[in-house]
Nucleic acid binder design. Sequence first.
DNA 1: AGTTTGAATGCAACTTAATTGCAAAATCAA
DNA 2: TTGATTTTGCAATTAAGTTGCATTCAAACT
Lengths: 138, 138
Amino acid sequence: MKSDAEQLLKEKNIKITANRILVLDVFLKNTHTLSLADIELALPWADRATIFRTLKTFEEKALLHSIKDDDKSVKYALCSNTCQVNHHRIHPHFHCDICGNTVCLTGFDIPILKLPDNYKANNYSLMINGICEKCQKQ
Amino acid sequence: MKSDAEQLLKEKNIKITANRILVLDVFLKNTHTLSLADIELALPWADRATIFRTLKTFEEKALLHSIKDDDKSVKYALCSNTCQVNHHRIHPHFHCDICGNTVCLTGFDIPILKLPDNYKANNYSLMINGICEKCQKQ
DNA sequence: AGTTTGAATGCAACTTAATTGCAAAATCAA
DNA sequence: TTGATTTTGCAATTAAGTTGCATTCAAACT
Ligand SMILES: [Mn+2]
Ligand SMILES: [Mn+2]
Ligand SMILES: [Zn+2]
Ligand SMILES: [Zn+2]
């Protein structure tokens, strides 16, 4: 009987290790994006370099995608089934200016611009800043 | 007889100094976005901290806006007249994956998404990655 | 089960960009 | 000219990300 994390790792052809299971579990238990520092907080005994390389591996294997918001550090989120190896991030992201959380807007499409012929577009990324539901109520 | 840079500084209520004129001149002579390191290269005698604070001041006064592309360092570009203090970046940006240059797509609008009521959007930023005109010809 | 082998890990050191403190210099208005 | 305020230069520091290397581990193969 394998855990969800183990299943996912197997599906993505990532070798199963204790570290990877636990890092992935952190993502499975959270709804918003997480930075390397967030993972360090969640797994205080874990080594930063190991977490770093774990995130890189996960991104490369399309288990996570990375997001740059206005914060200083890169954040990561679980890929949806629309993410492919070497082609991530087809949905917009929302960054709350108050609490600093960033979430995936899965289910929303990034509107595609018609650019002149001299531009060849490979990837669109749309970041929306504003105030999240939680912070509006406060 | 004031230079273009001096005019601009005056318009934006930024005190005129030698450093500021020369940093602004670098932007006026370039079509693509520039990082702090780029300015250091263009003005080798200038001090990094001074350039840093100059860029911050320019951004705050809506003379420059900052852009985060896939490169490690933040880039800056001249604001168009649509930029306001505390409300930058209303056009998309294009980052070439080959040469690494990033340009403003002024004249293109960022399509606005209809988000659920529980999200309050203040700012949209759209980054398009791909291959620029120059690099396609090579 | 024991052996082998390439991959993953832990630790420490390093890189890089961004950022700050502070004293000296420059600006500007009175 | 003087005094208050802002900007500058230099050096030191922060913070995130990244790497080298010896050791350990996972899993495939006797
Ligand atoms: Mn996402
Ligand atoms: Mn721009
Ligand atoms: Zn919030
Ligand atoms: Zn190019």
